[in-house]
Amino acid sequence: GLPPGWRKIHDAAGTYYWHVPSGSTQWQRPTW
């Protein structure tokens, strides 16, 4: 699974990851 606080988001551009507490997003899968 993903580290705490991360969500996987799907949209028209593809899949990305959202860090809910900080509001940051990234294309790379977050690592622990």
Rank of each mutant, 00 (worst) to 15 (best):
G1R: 13
G1F: 11
G1H: 13
G1Q: 13
G1S: 12
G1T: 11
G1Y: 11
G1L: 14
L2T: 02
L2G: 00
L2Q: 07
L2R: 03
L2I: 05
L2V: 04
P3Q: 02
P3N: 00
P3V: 01
P4W: 03
P4E: 07
P4V: 04
P4A: 05
P4M: 03
P4D: 07
G5V: 01
G5D: 06
G5A: 01
G5L: 02
G5M: 02
G5K: 00
G5T: 01
W6V: 00
W6R: 00
W6F: 02
W6A: 02
W6P: 00
W6N: 01
W6T: 01
W6Q: 02
W6E: 00
W6I: 00
R7V: 15
R7K: 11
R7A: 09
R7F: 09
R7M: 13
R7G: 02
R7E: 10
R7S: 10
K8S: 08
K8R: 12
K8A: 14
K8G: 05
K8D: 05
I9P: 00
I9N: 01
I9M: 13
I9V: 13
I9W: 06
H10Q: 12
H10K: 12
H10W: 08
H10G: 08
H10Y: 10
H10A: 12
H10M: 13
H10D: 13
D11P: 00
D11I: 11
D11S: 15
A12M: 09
A12D: 12
A12T: 10
A12Y: 08
A12R: 10
A13K: 14
A13N: 15
A13Q: 12
A13W: 14
A13I: 11
A13T: 14
A13P: 03
G14N: 05
G14H: 06
G14E: 07
G14F: 06
G14A: 05
G14M: 04
G14Y: 08
G14R: 06
T15W: 10
T15N: 09
T15P: 07
T15F: 08
Y16V: 07
Y16E: 06
Y16R: 08
Y16W: 11
Y16G: 07
Y16D: 04
Y17D: 00
Y17Q: 00
Y17S: 00
W18R: 07
W18S: 08
W18I: 15
W18P: 05
W18G: 03
W18Q: 12
W18T: 11
H19G: 01
H19M: 03
H19W: 04
H19S: 03
H19E: 02
H19Y: 06
V20W: 13
V20G: 07
V20T: 08
V20I: 11
V20H: 07
V20Y: 12
P21N: 07
P21W: 07
P21Y: 08
S22F: 02
S22P: 03
S22G: 02
S22A: 02
S22N: 02
S22Y: 03
S22T: 13
G23T: 01
G23Q: 05
G23I: 01
G23L: 03
G23W: 04
G23Y: 03
S24E: 14
S24N: 14
S24T: 15
S24L: 15
S24F: 14
T25M: 14
T25V: 14
T25H: 11
T25G: 10
T25I: 15
T25P: 04
T25N: 06
T25S: 08
Q26G: 03
Q26E: 06
Q26Y: 04
Q26F: 04
Q26D: 05
W27N: 12
W27T: 15
W27I: 15
W27G: 09
Q28R: 08
Q28F: 08
Q28P: 08
Q28G: 09
Q28I: 09
Q28W: 13
Q28E: 15
Q28D: 14
Q28L: 09
R29M: 11
R29S: 11
R29P: 15
R29V: 13
R29G: 06
R29E: 14
R29Q: 12
P30V: 00
P30R: 00
P30M: 00
P30W: 00
T31P: 07
T31I: 12
T31D: 11
T31F: 07
T31H: 09
W32N: 10
W32I: 10
W32Y: 10
W32G: 09
W32P: 08
W32F: 13
W32M: 10
